[in-house]
Design a protein around this nucleic acid. Structure first.
Lengths: 409, 409
DNA sequence: CTATATAATTCAAACCTTGAATTATCCGGA
DNA sequence: TCCGGATAATTCAAGGTTTGAATTATATAG
């Protein structure tokens, strides 16, 4: 029985008929996921497949209960009416679990993208204590799994959105230096706390999947740099349409870009990291907002800081005018290195993106000004806080459709 | 007649039997290119294809004269003797043309990788004059094409290795800012000077293809940063095994990384570019070697400078100790951004790679020291001045074998 | 009620690889 | 000289796949 053959993913591997079929099945399923209910002819038209082929492929998908025929909509045309196909998989769900500084969020979705359940559970636990954090995650996860069970849906895949870069092994370990977690086996820790966790579990960085989501909202963009500031400063890179992980999973950690050669020491050990000059704590302290920070928490304090800058409050403005120059310098360092088409700002920077864009333009003014390289744009993220959840969901959906029939076994 | 169908390369395209065959033909051809003459069984073993399939595929390739049966070597084993298959294509050649500051080089090669001809033509023309440079290139190209004709070989593909980043359009235009070329239609200029230029012409950056070559010599490395200094400072990035071009073709231009915030103005318009503090001219002038530079040329002067540093000559050493810190800082900026597995130093930096590595280690000492990210290594390039030529040749060969039968039409 | 138009299906044909069986070729020993 | 053993290469039926034309299905319009 071919098709289940394992191959070395590094070198070019031989192809076989079954691979063709799997690929084309994926095309049909993804077409439905992206374009909503569609007739077989529409799919054929839009995908380049033949109508006959689509018929056969659709039959397989229907038999596997991945797709079903929907109610024929009221129609206008002349000929035989359309029979819309839509994603079925009513017994399957995708689950995304995200941990923030102040809450844990669970998002349960159908493979078609419909949100089935959203839990946002506030917690007051200190982020620096892995065991307590895992308890919080486990509780939320348990509720989501239970809800899924009640709906009669099997969770095909669990994605855990981590608040920091994911270490070398992309599924097992979370290595966070900012919080001093070292290496923690998140998945193992959750398994020992909650029963019924699906086999397929992925651990992804929040900025990474957020970058994926923002790319999806900017059609045609293949090279993108996403930078976000909330708790700390994080970043992720998309090159040639694909997320960059780097050799050890740390690509895009722009918060620790040593931008200021004669700066002060960062807790990471380097000199003049971007976080030391433009990180949220540094900015709030410099703006004399330490009190708000302790009283209202980071997110509120940053929102208030942004407000003050936007209305032109002198102290905040002065602080920000200093900080955004360093941010712009960092962006230019990345821009020179990678030559992206787009730089997307997330977190509270999205509120202040215009001023960052100004600094960036000044910083970049000279650089090959006559060449095409000056076409890079700086824009605020369009998805706000949901970017990471959405990106994780899209990734999960894409993986699900990569082999729609294999996952049904 | 399917197979010739054009598809949208952006989105996922449907697959068909013919694609399977084309893919597997490519596997067989590439296997022979990489491993030399091999029997059908060896190919089957090494590629994952069935012996039966290899037989059929080989027949097609033999019929198309891409492959032929070689002389059966004297054998040791017991059973039926091996019939080695080797790449034929005796009527085809690949041509690479490279322009340096002091010479133009043409490399004519069989698709199997055998060098058929190598011309190195010194020229004293000023690099800043496109028309004169094109004359030089045209002369060398003409000689190479003529030689190929005499050998009875059709040049399937011409690759021009440019000494600077290639602009947005990856085949037509060379945009060099360091030399003030602006945008020059290199291919058009050559076509108007020389007859018989093949249809397929690619224009690539020297550091880009050099990076490809160095990656090939470091098996298993998928994320690599190649940095070279000779005339100026250039760099190229390989991410997930693939060369990065960036949105506008300028990725990896590390010479213009603004590493020194309070530095002096660069001719590119920015402040504190790496070239201003560690570029070849800056270093030679600071070391009091301006005279050697004018008398012996850049390459000789840099070789002499390297020698002085290696023997510990005080002035050169002092200059270098200052420069390599900035180089190391730049490398760390890239390392944080991209998290590569390997940083390869080319040009005269390869001679001084150890000292650069030292500075880099110090620079990096604190950074996530406990994490996996500290595993990046800095090594000298192994291929010297031929790296670019070799890389260009490998790329051309790979492209040739991507569709061995299509190219025979 | 008929003509028309569009959607979906069917089916022979062509293409691919698989995997077992068969043939080819050489070595070593009796 | 002859024969068994071993390995290489080929052959061939079988089972996938898509294609493309022909066919069937089902609506609307007049």
């Amino acid at each position: 029985m071919p098709g289940g053959k394992r191959r070395d993913p590094g070198s070019a591997s031989s192809l076989v008929s079954a691979d063709v079929r799997a690929h084309n099945l994926g095309i049909v399923a993804r077409y439905l996921a992206e374009n909503g209910p569609s007739s077989r002819s529409q799919i054929a038209e839009g995908s380049g497949l033949t109508r006959g082929a689509v018929t056969v492929l659709a039959s397989s998908l229907i038999e596997a209960a991945v797709v079903r025929e929907a109610q024929p909509k009221y129609k206008a045309g002349k000929g035989r009416p359309i029979v819309p196909l839509e994603l079925a998989s009513d017994d399957v769900a995708l689950l995304v679990l995200q941990l923030d500084a102040d809450k844990a969020t669970a998002l349960l979705s159908s493979v078609a993208g419909d949100v089935l359940l959203r839990i946002a559970e506030p917690h007051g636990r200190p982020m620096g204590r892995p065991e307590m954090i895992l308890d919080v995650l486990a509780a939320t996860l348990g509720r989501a799994l239970e809800a899924s069970r009640e709906m009669g849906r099997r969770v095909a895949e669990l994605t855990i959105v981590a608040f920091a870069p994911v270490g070398g092994d992309p599924v097992e370990v979370l290595a966070d230096t900012d919080l001093g977690w070292g290496r923690v086996d998140v998945v193992g820790g959750l398994r020992s706390r909650v029963a019924g966790i699906p086999e397929v579990v992925r651990l992804v960085g929040d900025v990474h999947v957020a970058a994926v989501a923002e790319q999806g909202f900017n059609p045609g963009i293949q090279d993108l740099c996403y930078v976000k500031s909330n708790s700390g400063i994080g970043g992720a890179l998309i090159v040639d349409g694909k997320l960059v992980h780097g050799g050890f999973g740390l690509a895009g950690a722009l918060g620790h870009l040593p931008v200021q050669p004669d700066g002060c020491e960062c807790e990471c050990g380097q000199i003049g990291c971007l976080v030391t000059v433009a990180g949220p704590d540094a900015v709030l302290i410099a703006a004399g907002m330490g009190e708000e920070l302790h009283r209202d928490g980071l997110t509120s304090a940053l929102a208030e800081f942004s407000r003050r800058v936007l209305v032109g409050e002198p102290v905040a403005t002065a602080v920000w005018d200093d900080a955004r120059v360093w941010i712009a310098r960092s962006l230019q360092l990345v821009a020179v290195t990678l030559d992206p088409q787009l730089i997307v700002l997330g977190g509270y920077w999205s509120l202040l993106s215009e001023s960052i864009g100004q600094s960036f333009a000044e910083q970049r003014k000279g650089f090959f000004a006559a060449g095409a390289g000056s076409a890079v744009r700086v824009v605020p993220g369009r998805l706000g806080d949901d970017a990471a959840l959405l990106g994780a969901l899209w990734q999960a959906r894409d993986r699900y459709f990569a082999g729609p029939l294999e996952m049904k076994t």
